[in-house]
């Protein structure tokens, strides 16, 4: 049977988005290790990242993750293109603030800033640690790659600290709108449930954005 692109594309964006939301929880929990005192943080953080790199199951998940990001972006792009075509002329005056949130009106733009962030983020870590590009990564006392050191060095550059923290604002906005929207896109319509969902989305987005946003500062002041 023919699938309806209006639903199909949005469902793909929603499903990949939800998967990425799950991932962010795991990511943040791991990053919380950075909040521990210097010694403990270094050891546990490095051990954890080594485990991640070597666990075959995580490898599969990692590929799913890369794929999700790509698919999320590509489909969001397709959606945006169609949406632009659907509204070829915009209004001379348009007070969208009176009927909707700024984030919901600008998900594409916000998404783009997050994409740029991800590229830089990957260059900072993934490229160095996994692909071995750039300066060599040392090993810690336990023989694990010293990922902690990479983080520590990065977050002692105030520009990176600011970049990493500030970009959590669009992330928060994206998650806040994206999470509730994804559930609705996938057909969740229970009336009370939607009210709860709205609250959960807010809490979730705030925790993720604040959590990721604080860490660079904590490391900076270590």
């Amino acid at each position: 049977m023919k699938v309806n692109t209006l639903f199909f594309r949005k469902s793909i964006v929603a499903a990949t988005g939800l998967f990425l939301c799950l991932f962010l929880i795991v990511h943040l929990s791991a990053n919380c290790l950075l909040l521990l005192p210097e010694q403990a943080a270094r050891g546990m953080y490095n051990a954890y990242s080594t485990w991640l790199r070597e666990n075959p199951l995580i490898k599969v998940v990692a590929y799913a993750l890369y794929l999700s990001i790509i698919v999320h972006v590509v489909y969001a792009l397709l959606v945006t293109i169609r949406n632009r075509k659907a509204k070829p002329v915009s209004y001379a005056v348009n007070h969208t603030e009176a009927n909707s949130s700024w984030a919901s009106q600008n998900m594409g733009l916000i998404g783009l800033s997050i994409l740029i962030f991800i590229v830089i983020h990957l260059a900072n870590f993934w490229a160095r640690i996994k692909l071995g590009l750039g300066a060599d990564v040392g090993v810690d006392a336990a023989g694990n790659k010293d990922v902690y050191e990479v983080t520590y060095a990065l977050f002692h550059n105030i520009y990176f600290v600011l970049f990493y923290s500030l970009l959590m604002i669009p992330l928060g906005l994206h998650l806040h709108h994206g999470l509730k929207s994804a559930f609705k896109t996938l057909g969740f319509y229970h009336k009370r449930g939607l009210e709860v969902l709205a609250r959960i989305s807010l809490i979730y987005a705030a925790v993720i954005a604040a959590g990721f946003g604080i860490i660079p500062f904590v490391v900076y002041f270590k």
Partner: peptide, 18 residues
Amino acid sequence: MTAQMEREGFGHCSFTGA
């Protein structure tokens, strides 16, 4: 009905709520 909605060139719903 949704197929026709697609054919007519309407955009996707992104739940702005406007």
